[in-house]
Design a protein around this nucleic acid. Structure first.
Length: 425
RNA sequence: GGAGAGGUGCCAGAGUGGUUGAAUGGGACGGUCUCGAAAACCGUUUUAGGGCUUGCUCUAACGAGAGUUCGAAUCUCUCCCUCUCCGCCA
């Protein structure tokens, strides 16, 4: 959520930012509503002040034995007036909220302006020693490998739940678990994160806090009976840990890493890049979330990307880092890097991580503040999060990059102590 | 799911219709005292929003929302949460 005062004072900046994000805005409407809102506030508060003053006199008058019936009657009519104004005010505030909750975060000045993913900028590429994009041998894709080695079963997953719910079996399941543990351990022991294991179902306020609602409601699984949403990412429960709280400046930055299953309806995306693991309704992810002071948040973003990259370097998976252009940025993000890993069978890059700085956009929605030691005032902090990383797309790269000409899979060195085996055959 | 108790400031805890944004205690911060510290004493200590002469002023908030009333932390209703007991259960 953007600051109403900021919108009021900088309508052009807001309009431009929203346009660069390929979104529509109702800034003008918002500004005129805001003006009306302030007029109503003044009117209603003047009446309330008067009412309070007179009401406080009533007990005094009674004590003095004076007749209060006419004052009471007068206050009653003022009360009715206040009620009418308050109702109007509430309507306006609801309308303002409806507009403001749909205004996206503005892109940071360092983000390239662009329309679509084609305008994203490659920042760097990394590949292990001796790696080549050319493959003399025939490479199997992850679906073929999964079937041949009996470690992935998409058909039975579909029978149990539906398409997009993969089933991991035997060494495939162990490898998945090993990967999760390896990533968590690395972030906790080497990158200074604290482990958290969050709930997978969250309430409506949490979904609003991180920006999934109201805009993306159709993409979320919803349990009507209990008014709960399955999380699309651990970002939601972890960021909302501090919703409505004021933190101490000395405790910042706060860094959490947590595993969760992630649930996405992916409404309307059937057919496109949807085979196997490429687009699924349930996947596993280790998420990193940071709560930081505003002034250092862009350094924290760079560090966050590096922490995610570390995992891939240890796994020896080729990857590249993209700086997303304005048009490809998500609703809540001010700046975002995607990390894509290489799939030799698809012969393309697959998005495995997204690291974003939300500045105070989420903090404002979720009302997460810290007390500035200098000013002693509560201020909104900045939130960031990054996948570190999502296993499903990463699993594609691991299986495909680590296959042998005979169609076996070598377990990456760093995962071997977690799996207890070195080859899948 | 059933029965009961309860949700007040950083914490503890009073307050059952009338200047109560809230007693009292603790903590924290500032000051006096001290070589220094402790103790003692004095003072400060929620947040959001509006207005203008930016310092003041007004409004709102005692789990959330609605209601009664001239006036609500206090009364009524709905919801949420916590605790205790019972039931069920990984």
């Amino acid at each position: 959520m953007l600051d109403l005062k900021f919108i009021r004072e900088n309508p052009d900046i807001v309009r431009q930012g929203v346009e660069n994000k390929n979104e529509k805005s109702r800034v003008d409407e918002l500004i005129s509503l805001d003006k009306k809102r302030r007029e109503y506030i003044q009117e209603t508060e003047d009446l309330k002040a008067k009412k309070n003053a007179v009401s406080n006199q009533i007990p005094v008058m009674k004590k003095e034995g004076k007749d209060t019936t006419s004052v009471i009657a007068e206050m009653k009519s003022i009360g009715d007036e206040i009620k009418v104004l308050d109702d109007k005010l509430k309507d306006i505030e609801t309308e303002i909220e409806n507009i403001v909750m749909y205004i996206p975060n503005l892109p940071h000045s360092s983000v390239p302006v662009g329309k679509s993913a084609a305008d994203n900028v490659e920042v760097r590429q990394w590949k292990p020693d001796g790696f080549s994009f050319e493959n003399p041998e025939k490479v199997l894709d992850h679906i073929e490998l999964g079937k041949k080695l009996k470690i992935l079963d998409f058909e039975r997953g579909a029978k149990i739940s539906g398409s997009g719910f993969p089933l991991y079996i035997g060494k495939g399941a162990t490898l998945e678990r090993a990967l999760i543990n390896f990533m968590l351990d690395t972030h906790i022991n080497e990158h200074g994160f604290k482990e958290v294991f969050p709930p997978f179902l969250v309430n409506r306020d949490s979904m609003k806090g991180t920006g999934q609602l109201p805009k993306m409601e159709d993409d979320m699984y919803f349990i009507n009976k209990d008014d709960l949403f399955t999380i699309p990412t651990a970002e939601v429960p972890i960021t909302n840990m501090y919703r409505g709280e004021i933190l101490e400046e000395k405790d910042l930055p706060i860094k959490y890493a947590g595993y969760s299953a992630c649930f996405r309806r992916e409404a309307g995306s059937y057919g496109k890049d949807s085979k196997g693991f490429l687009r699924v309704h349930q996947f596993n992810k280790v998420e990193m979330v940071k709560f930081v002071k505003p002034e250092g948040s862009y350094d924290e973003l760079e560090a966050l990307v590096n922490d995610a990259e570390d995992i891939l370097q240890m796994l020896k998976i080729p990857y590249r880092v993209l700086l997303l252009c304005t048009g490809d940025l998500s609703f809540s993000a001010a700046k975002c890097y995607d990390i894509e890993t290489w799939s030799p069978a698809e012969n393309k890059w697959l998005e495995a991580s997204s690291c974003s700085n939300f500045e105070n956009f989420q903090a404002r929605r979720a009302n997460i503040r810290y007390r500035n030691e200098l000013t002693k005032k509560p201020e909104f902090l900045h939130t960031l999060n990054g996948s570190g990383l999502a296993t499903s797309r990463l699993m594609v790269s691991i299986l495909e990059n680590y296959q042998t000409p005979e169609g076996k899979i070598i377990v990456p060195k760093v995962l071997q102590k977690y799996t207890g085996f070195t080859v899948i055959d």
